[in-house]
């Protein structure tokens, strides 16, 4: 009896497990389940958790990844209306929006199959939109002219509209440019131009540097010269003022011009021989004449050195 209870319990457990495997399926978060009834989509379970199903072959459960997928097209050439050619690569964030629509469109809801179709749509939209914008819309320092984000938005709208029209059951969440380039031959031309530009900048910087340096120096010289000439002018005025004051003092000398002249001569002589003077003297020069023997007094008045200047 004991054994049979155990057997029954084990059998019950096995039956429960088997039953669960047959009738229950689970949907993980980030997944969505498409349940088909005899191969035709019957219903969709979008919320995570367990779900009931009829056993195969009546019902089949297909689980689809409902997360946002990253799709990148190809880095391809696009011809612009201004005859420029650029290379453009965009990436797309998309997710399954309507599994019931998505599942029958692509083999068993294959993400890869969906992206193969998406590639054509994105390429078409990219070429169509980029083909309406000149090169300056892609790169420009002028904010008004720059239409980088606008171009992205236009491609996005076009792809969105197309997947909607085609009933893919896809939601294009966002689309951005990932890479912009130029054909190899064009890059060579760009390099040549850049080399020429650098050479021009070098020459320009050198000549501007010399010009700037010369300007600064000549301006300094000019300002200094003006400063000095202003100072000379001011000095002349000051000296003139001094001479004017002196002339007032000179008026007193008119009282006796002879004395004034004598005083000036004496002062000039004193100033002239003030220092480091070498005097070559004659014996008759006063007071060296006193070195001569004293002569008789009869002619004393005539031998005196009075009135002779040294």
């Amino acid at each position: 009896m004991k054994r049979s209870r155990l057997t029954i319990a084990v059998a019950f457990v096995l039956i429960v497990i088997f039953g669960l495997l047959l009738f229950v399926y689970q949907v993980r978060k980030s997944e969505v389940a498409v349940v088909t009834l005899f191969g035709k989509v019957d219903h969709v379970k979008e919320t995570p958790g367990p779900g009931f199903r009829l056993p195969w072959p009546i019902e089949n459960v297909y689980k689809l990844d409902q997360r946002i997928q990253n799709f990148e097209g190809k880095f391809e050439q696009v011809k612009l209306p201004d005859q420029n050619i650029i290379m453009l690569l965009v990436y797309v964030g998309w997710r399954i929006e309507d599994p019931a629509l998505f599942f029958p469109q692509f083999t068993n809801g294959s993400i890869a199959a969906a992206e193969r179709n998406l590639e054509d749509l994105v390429r078409s939209a990219k070429n169509e939109v980029a083909g309406q914008h000149p090169f300056s819309d892609f790169i420009s320092a002028d904010e008004k002219q720059m239409k980088f984000t606008r171009i992205e938005g236009e491609i996005l709208q076009k792809v969105r509209q197309q997947v909607k029209d085609l009933h893919y059951g896809i939601d294009i969440k966002f689309l951005q440019i990932k890479k912009i380039g130029l054909p190899e031959q064009v890059t060579q031309n760009v390099f040549d131009r850049m080399t020429a530009e650098r050479q021009f900048y070098i020459s320009q910087i050198q000549s501007l540097g010399e010009e700037e340096s010369t300007k600064i120096k000549s301006a300094a010289d000019s300002t200094a010269a003006k400063l000095l000439s202003d100072a000379d002018a001011q000095a002349k005025i000051i000296r003139g003022e001094g001479e004017a004051q002196m002339m007032k003092s000179l008026e007193v000398f008119q009282q006796n011009p002879e004395l004034a002249e004598f005083n000036m001569q004496i002062t000039a002589l004193e100033d002239l021989l003030k220092e480091k003077a070498t005097l070559v003297l004659d014996q008759s020069t006063s007071p060296l004449n006193l070195l001569q023997p004293i002569q008789p007094q009869k002619n004393a008045s005539t031998n005196a050195p009075a009135g002779r200047n040294p």
Binding site: N263, K276, L279, S286, L288
Partner: peptide, 21 residues
């Protein structure tokens, strides 16, 4: 005044050379 000036000049002169007749 002349003698006073000469005195000052002789005193200040650095070199004095006496030349005979």
């Amino acid at each position: 005044r002349q003698m006073m000036a000469l005195e000052q000049i002789y005193t200040n002169a650095q070199d004095k050379i006496l030349e005979p007749h």
